[in-house]
Amino acid sequence: MRGMTAFLKKEFCEMIRTYKILILGSVFFLLGVIGPLTAKYMPEIMEQFLPQGMTLALEAPKALDSWMQFFKNVPQMGLIIVVIVFSGMMASEWSKGTLVLVLTKGLARRSVIMAKFLTATLLWSGAYWLCFGISYGYTRFFWDERTPRLGAAAAFVWLFGVMLIAVTLLGGVLFRGSYTVLLFTGFLVVMMFIINILPSAQKYNPIMLVSSSMELLEGIKRIEDFMAPTLITGGLLIASLIGSAAIFDKKQL
């Protein structure tokens, strides 16, 4: 347990030293601010670019427009940044040879996997919920409206991000290069989009957690509709962690 705690401290120190905390914090802070501001002022900005004398009939912005920006920006930009930032969490250990030192001192290999996963998950969670909190604050400031099922929609996106971290960690155990890890994780996501073409597979596809958020907020889908993809996402997360630990146990350093 002491070895695990020491390795966790080492991971957090490395996150600070390599500016990963600063990068994720800055990116998600900006995403949290940009969404509500874009929804609020985009109609006015568009009017400025119209030819003189021409008018454009636009609906007054509302809270749902702000959350549409949030649930578009975070999956399309935020999660990509997360995968890029964490794609080297094992590659750097392979290249520096630091794992040999900690493992020869008695640290269990599974503890390395769990420490890497916990550190990345805590960093993702902090950045994500910071972004959500900023968006929520600005949205309530501009529009005093309550959005039903908002917490559930946000939690589904968070869970998908945790699953991506576990998959990225698995890629880091399988391959020694960060670019290969990116290809591995990207391939999985692309396969989800391809599978989503099949109507019968859509209700089970984990990609639904990040692609159907607005349908949930608008009442087109119910929370119950997300239960199957949530369970499958959780299964992929656990399978990735178990696979990472099992493969790393047999991996030659």
Rank of each mutant, 00 (worst) to 15 (best):
L103Q: 10
C131W: 00
E145I: 10
P75N: 11
L231C: 11
V181W: 01
L56S: 08
T121L: 09
E145A: 12
L123W: 03
M68Q: 15
V167E: 01
A63K: 01
E47V: 10
I34Q: 03
T55C: 02
I16N: 14
S87P: 03
L123P: 02
A127G: 06
I195T: 14
F117Q: 02
E93C: 07
M77W: 13
L118D: 02
R109Q: 04
A228E: 07
Q48M: 15
M15Q: 13
F117I: 04
K250Y: 10
K62V: 10
G186H: 00
Q69Y: 13
G25Q: 02
V189C: 09
G97Q: 02
L253W: 08
V100Y: 12
L174Q: 03
S66L: 03
G53I: 10
R140V: 14
N73R: 12
F70V: 15
W143I: 09
M191R: 09
S92M: 11
I80C: 11
E218V: 08
M89V: 12
A127Y: 01
K96L: 12
L107A: 03
S244P: 08
M4E: 09
A91R: 05
P43E: 04
E145P: 10
I247E: 08
M208L: 13
T55D: 07
S26I: 11
V100K: 13
T98A: 10
A153T: 04
W129I: 06
L209K: 03
G235K: 06
T119D: 05
L64V: 10
Q48S: 15
W67N: 03
E44W: 11
M89K: 05
F187G: 12
F175N: 02
L183C: 10
A153V: 03
T121K: 04
S66G: 09
I134Q: 00
G25T: 01
Y41I: 05
C13M: 15
I220P: 10
L118A: 14
Q76F: 13
S26Y: 08
K20N: 08
L188T: 12
T185Q: 03
M77T: 14
L99V: 12
T98M: 07
F12D: 03
F49C: 07
Q52M: 13
G88Q: 04
G53Y: 06
K221V: 08
L236V: 11
K203L: 11
A120R: 00
S178I: 00
G235E: 04
A127R: 00
I16A: 15
Y204D: 07
V181P: 01
A91C: 11
Q52E: 15
L8M: 12
L237T: 08
E11A: 08
P206E: 06
V27Q: 00
I247R: 09
R2I: 14
Y19S: 14
V100C: 09
Q48D: 13
